[in-house]
Write a protein that binds this DNA or RNA. Structure first.
Length: 636
RNA sequence: GCCGCCGCAGCUCAAUGGCAGAGCAGCCGCCUUGUAAGCGGGAGGUCCGGGUUCGACUCCCGGCGGCGGCUCCA
């Protein structure tokens, strides 16, 4: 009997029923036969060993496809588990999925793994690849599977099986002596997993809950070719050079010292950057109808009890006493802003009221999570609280979405959007949460934004839209967020006078765009690898005299630039020009002006750009107007 | 907070129980220099507290801090 196979280009081929997908791939082309890792059969991801039973649409996946890479890495994680059980019998298996650039497997083992053992495990994995064991799918009944893993002492697998839905198909995969519970699919055999490397060792809680036992997680990655692995490792090394912690030191932007873990120090150059960002921020916010405020860092306990922070946020707060009463250091700016709103009566005509605050907050974060400027214990949020009429909610939310998009586009950032819903520790009723979450969702839909839902990740007083940016290693950090809040207005008995002359309850939005100045500067630093756009560069121009005979002219040039409010430095050291250029390049200063006799005589400068290189001579005034334009337009 | 690793000069790294070293940066001097490292000289250090030892950077215990994860969040 013949079955028809429809390929992704729309072409149709005919095969005998029972022909495996591997044969089909090889029939299409020799190359596809060698490179195909898995396939989808009418949209279902399957092994290449799967036989054709009926007419179907088939797509083959190779390492070039996300699906192919996932299958490849997941298969490698099985090899890891096999190697570990060969070397360390008695080790129980938890889970071992593929992740962005590789895979991991979690183990519960009587032995404590060390980096040296990792090398042995990797060697064992390589020999399993050498053995070229085929991955064999075993469909099992729930009963069979439970018995099998119970006998093997694999308690975690038993727990996983028990938690599978009633009607779930249960399958295992076997390669050689090793069998693991797995939905699949897998590559045909271990021999395909040519080039692999174990990259890390870490603790991880079973099922991601700190209440559970901590397991040992081994991270790794794999590729079909050694050269691809080498490229990957090289890229990682290059990315590390953009790490904001490293650049922060090299470029003298900031430091974090033992005396204040998680409390960053901003150095003069870092402050220039920060002030430029704030200047830009104020300019835009003024235009968008925000009014700037500033509220105190330390406020009385009663305020925090009223806001709900005392009950819901206490473990993240710092406390102090003043004249025998309790005070807290603010972890958020909202209660302060609310007090300003409450300090006078508001008419419906005044709304929305948008109070913006570059507010310094302190939060006690667990020591293990601190990370350069990305995760700190004190930071300045570019906060704002919008008090509005219920029917202004949608416009205000979309307005903030537009604002965030505008800011990020200025820096050339790509971002991801997530919608975070009601957490376990939340105030307020289910209905209010549904209302607020629905409003955020509506706004996202009306903007046709792609977003992912993050269940249970909202703030304790409301759901939020989060904007995530990537660091140099592809880790993402929440920066902007928009939170819709019906609860604080209630708690603080906020009101406005409506058309009817009666008091009504306003709705509130909490929002940040940069997120925190600290985190944003971290992201910015990694994004540009320290080579900030001219408008942000702490030093925009360095003047480099060839010899000290041109020092006077160099001073003149520097002074001229400074009169134009261009941040310029003179390198007046008695050094060779190559040396001065090398250093300025290392500091990623956008423009270097080389001045020697020729320039001094003609009133010109020899312009060098940090990435374009030598741009030749230019009149000083010409250079001034060019760079001023570049700064004015904030070009990146 | 939890798991693993790590902590030596401003930075990057040597020194496995026996006098603590190198490169770069900084300082001094020489060189007067044309688009990514000129030459020479001096100065500078073992995270903190205990313990073992004739002797500890090194081994042990505790603390503090960092890195990578987990959990948690801007």
């Amino acid at each position: 009997m013949v079955v028809k196979v429809t390929l992704k280009d729309g072409s149709i081929r005919e095969y005998q029923k029972g022909t495996t997908l591997a044969r089909v791939a090889a029939d299409i082309s020799g190359r596809l036969g060698r490179e195909a890792l898995a396939a989808s059969l009418d949209g279902r991801l399957v092994d290449l060993a799967t036989p054709l039973e009926r007419d179907a649409g088939v797509v083959f996946y190779t390492f070039d496809d996300e699906e192919g890479r996932q299958v490849f890495r997941h298969s490698t994680s099985h090899v890891l588990a096999q190697a570990v059980q060969r070397l360390f019998p008695g080790t129980r298996l938890a889970i071992g999925p593929a992740i962005a650039d590789g895979f991991y497997y979690d183990f519960d083992s009587p032995v404590r793994f060390t980096p040296e053992m990792l090398e042995k495990i990797q060697a064992e994995m390589e020999s399993i690849v050498e053995e070229d064991l085929s991955f064999e799918r075993l469909d099992m009944s729930r009963q069979e599977a439970l018995e099998f893993f119970r006998r093997a002492g694999e308690d975690y697998k038993v727990e996983l099986i028990n938690d599978l839905p009633e009607n779930a198909a249960i399958s295992c995969y076997r390669q050689g002596e090793f069998t693991d519970l797995c939905a699949g699919p897998h590559v045909p055999s271990t021999g395909r997993l040519k080039s692999l490397k174990l990259t890390g060792l870490a603790g991880a809680y079973w099922r991601g809950s700190e209440k559970n036992k901590m397991l040992q997680r081994i991270y790794g990655t794999s590729f079909p070719r050694k050269s691809m692995l080498d490229d990957y490792l090289f890229r990682i090394e290059e990315a590390k050079k953009r790490d904001h912690r490293r650049l922060g030191t090299e470029l003298d932007l900031f430091s974090i010292q033992e005396e204040g873990p998680g409390f960053p120090f901003f150095h003069p150059k870092g402050m220039v950057l920060r002030n430029e960002l704030e200047r830009f921020w104020r300019e835009v916010h003024r235009k968008r109808g925000y009014q700037e405020v500033r509220t105190p860092i330390i406020l009385n306990r009663s305020l925090w009890e009223r806001s709900g922070h005392w009950d819901h946020y206490r473990e993240n707060m710092y406390f102090t006493r003043i004249d025998d009463s309790d005070y807290a250091v603010k972890p958020m700016n909202c209660p302060g802003s609310i007090l300003i709103y409450k300090s006078r009566l508001h008419s419906y005509r005044d709304l929305p009221v948008r109070l913006a605050e570059l507010g310094l907050v302190h939060r006690h974060e667990l020591s293990g999570v601190l990370h350069g400027l990305m995760r700190v214990r004190c930071f300045t949020q570019d906060d704002a609280h919008i008090f509005m009429l219920p029917d202004q909610v949608k416009d205000e939310i979309t307005g903030v979405i537009d604002l965030v998009d505008y800011f990020y586009s200025v820096f050339g950032f790509k971002y991801r959007v997530e919608l975070s819903t009601k957490p376990e520790k939340a105030m307020g009723t289910e209905e209010i949460w549904e209302l607020a979450t629905g409003a955020l969702e509506d706004a996202l839909k009306s903007k046709e934004t792609d977003y992912k839902v993050n269940e249970g990740d909202g703030a304790f007083y409301g759901p939020k839209i989060d904007f995530h940016l990537e660091d140099c290693l592809g880790r993402t950090w929440q920066c902007g967020t928009i939170q819709l809040d019906f609860l604080m207005p209630e708690k603080f008995d906020l009101s406005y006078i409506g058309e009817d002359g009666q008091k009504h309850r306003p709705v509130m939005i909490h929002r940040v765009v940069f997120g925190s100045m600290e985190r944003f500067i971290g992201i910015l630093t990694e994004h540009f690898g320290g080579a900030f756009p001219v408008w942000l560069a702490p030093v925009q121009v360095r003047v480099l005299p060839i010899t000290d005979r041109q020092l006077d002219y160099g001073r003149e040039v520097t002074a001229r630039l400074e009169r134009e409010e261009i941040r310029a430095e003179l390198d007046d050291r008695n050094e060779k020009i190559n040396y001065k250029i090398r250093e300025a390049q290392g500091l990623k200063i956008p423009y270097m002006l080389v001045v020697g006799n020729r320039e001094a005589e003609n009133g010109t400068v020899a312009v060098r750009h940090r990435s374009a290189g030598d741009l030749g001579p230019a009149g000083l005034e010409e250079f001034v107007s060019r760079i001023r334009e570049e700064i004015r337009t904030r070009s990146v």
